[in-house]
């Protein structure tokens, strides 16, 4: 079993590296710097860290001002508050002015665990994806998270980088580079496409292993860039395999599954199944329990693929 690290751990570490390299990064957080790991930047570069207190709207507004003046601000807090509480600030100040604010909140999805539904953000991809100019990245592991943060730091304009609390296996090597708008083929296959993002990439890979034992050859895509979306790439895979399962730790409404449906509908209509949280809020429990409870495990993906194969022409 490979080493497990949470994607959030990449935030503070990468910001320190970037500052070391002379990139003009700053972090603005809202009383969660330990959890988001921006405290690492605060420790190494106290002048590059600003705590606004528990005031997420002000966090986004302050970051916007820093961006106006040419700094590269990353914001912290939890996904639920950074996107939900501060939505108007993200829309009307950051995106409408096309400012280089890099939202990198942590604790997205149900793998937050016992804190429960109030803290398990399942709608953030949907909220961020509809904003003109926003780039939405969902890294699958620690290495991809670091690469996403680096990419955002050197690319002008707004970014949303979705980071998680729970440890996930490190699947990429140090040579990994994030490609905006490109999915990564982790496994080639011909019978069904499993398009996954974030913590679901691990599950999709395991599902592909299980399906392989039955002679089903699944193609696994890590769709870490939800926007810009690799629509043509997904369509090409769908044309080859004839069926797609979208897998996300997010509501099935508005997230990766929706983006895949849009792409397939326009470019390559094939049977589609969406594995994700089915229009309900989260609940308290341990991450692994919740993955099973909400039907987000490798088994659930494999089952969805088996059902889909029956519908395939």
């Amino acid at each position: 079993m490979s080493e497990k690290r949470a994607t959030r751990e990449a935030l503070g570490e990468t910001l320190v590296e970037l500052a070391n390299e002379g990139v003009d990064v700053v972090a603005v957080d809202a009383d969660l710097s330990g959890s988001t790991t921006t405290a690492k930047l605060a420790k190494a570069y106290p002048d590059r860290f600003f705590n606004v207190g528990i005031a997420e709207q002000n966090m986004i507004g302050t970051a916007a001002g820093l961006a106006v003046e040419g700094k590269v601000p990353f914001t912290g807090s939890f996904a639920v508050f950074a996107t939900g509480r501060a939505y108007d600030q993200v829309r009307n100040t950051v995106c409408y002015s096309n400012l280089g604010v890099k939202l990198a909140p942590t604790h997205a999805g149900i793998t937050v665990g016992p804190d429960g539904g109030s803290h398990q953000m399942l709608e953030d991809i949907a909220l961020m994806r509809v904003l003109p100019g926003m780039r939405v990245l969902v890294p699958a592991d620690y290495v991809a998270a670091k690469a996403a943060i680096r990419l955002a730091a050197v690319t002008p304009g707004p970014f949303y980088i979705r980071l998680g609390r729970a440890g996930v296996p490190v699947i990429y090597g140090d040579d990994y580079a994030f490609e905006l708008g490109r999915a990564r083929v982790l496994r080639e296959g011909v019978h069904v496409t499993l398009a996954a993002c974030g913590v679901m990439v691990e599950q999709a890979l395991a599902a592909a292993e299980a399906l392989a034992l039955e002679g089903v050859n699944a193609e696994v895509l890590d769709v870490s860039t939800i926007k810009p979306f690799p629509a043509e790439q997904i369509a090409a895979s769908a044309r080859k395999t004839g069926a797609v399962v979208a897998c996300e730790e997010h509501s099935v409404i508005g997230g990766l599954g929706s983006a895949v449906a849009e792409a397939l509908g326009e470019l390559a209509p094939v049977p589609l199944a969406r594995v994700g949280v089915r229009d309900v809020f989260g609940t308290s429990g341990e991450p692994a329990e919740l993955m099973a409870h909400f039907g987000l495990t490798a088994d659930d993906i494999a089952n969805a693929a088996r059902e889909l194969l029956k519908r395939k022409k």
């Binding site: 016992p114 804190d115 429960g116 109030s118 803290h119 609940t283 308290s284 341990e286 329990e289 919740l290």
Partner: peptide, 13 residues
């Protein structure tokens, strides 16, 4: 408290 299925969620529900 905080367990799957509990009436006592991590935050009051």
């Amino acid at each position: 408290l905080r367990k799957l299925g509990s009436i006592l969620q991590g935050h009051p529900d």
